[in-house]
Write a protein that binds this DNA or RNA. Structure first.
Lengths: 158, 158
DNA sequence: GGATTGGTACTCGGATATTACGTGTCCGAGTATTCTAGG
DNA sequence: CCTAGAATACTCGGACACGTAATATCCGAGTACCAATCC
């Protein structure tokens, strides 16, 4: 059970894009340089976020990425699912219906207790991530960092 | 983000062991046959659970596995951590301290908002799994299954 | 001087190698049993 | 008949291959800009 590091990159970049002037875009080189990330690999995750509808990509000169929606309308879960995929981490294999202790299918209309429990835990995790937006993240920056990053990203914007 | 299928196997086997007569052990062949699982691979996970102190292994003739503690004292989280490892799925790389937008270390005494959020979500997930024990799982069996499985495991026990 | 058209430089998008981890399997270490031999 | 001993069969434990997904990287597709040219 390991979460891709791309999630951290994507969240930091989304928070940074939230500080860019409205309508302006930031190149992936600018995003990668701000956090010293490998440009080519970061591109893969930015691409996934664009495909998921979290970011909007503009090609050509003066192109780059911008948030597809206002920061307050993008939840952390949106970014996580964009990068990790929407598939749940646990999928019940229904092993209770196999082997010498097989339970007849007519007794398996309800999901087994283990599946239900895992689904509930996953729901708690996702709810926790859904409750926070990108706008909340920048609001929780240390004092002064918001202004400084906004200035830096404004120089990199085009 | 994918959870090992061994978690499902381990939880089902733990629930089955909870129905075994007190003090008796069940061979891994018996556990695997009950759910039609590959014996050799299941052994790997049972071994991990034994190492984590969830199961107690007995070698030699009439050996096998039994729960190391009463079913009510073993949480689902214990089994999950025994198989998946106790490491959290998200580890902050502190990329905010790197690159052209690097934040000075003295401003990073507190974990960044992303790290705090991920830790909180992971806590919610673990709390959800910690709230349920193996005893709860067998209590949620469909009517009659508990008695039937108890009878089956009693025959396989030694 | 203004509009048009072709070229050019710049950006992202998808396809391609490399590495790490989960998956699957095997043989060796250790123990209770059991059979045999001696008293 | 009882006891001591060694052989034996059975169980788990750790070490060894394989497949899939995350990691890391490259080159091609598409667009806006710019310059040269024509009207």
């Amino acid at each position: 059970m390991k979460l891709s590091q791309g999630v951290e990159w994507g969240l930091h970049c989304a928070a940074l894009l939230a500080l860019a002037p409205p309508g302006m875009t930031v190149r992936r080189e600018g995003l990668a340089g701000h956090y010293a990330l490998p440009v080519t690999y970061l591109a893969k995750h930015l691409q996934a976020m664009a495909r998921a509808g979290v970011l909007h990509a503009v090609t050509g000169p003066r192109g780059g990425y911008r948030l597809a929606r206002p920061p307050g309308d993008i939840t952390v879960l949106d970014v996580v699912e964009a990068i990790e995929g929407p598939a749940p981490p646990f999928v019940c294999q229904e092993i209770r219906q196999r082997g010498t202790g097989a339970v007849p299918p007519e007794s398996c209309r309800r999901p087994c207790a283990i599946d239900a429990l895992m689904t509930q835990a996953d729901r708690a995790w996702r709810d926790s991530l859904r409750a926070v937006t990108i706008a909340d993240l920048v609001d929780r920056y240390p004092p002064g960092l918001r202004e400084r990053n906004a200035e830096l990203v404004a120089k990199a914007a085009s």
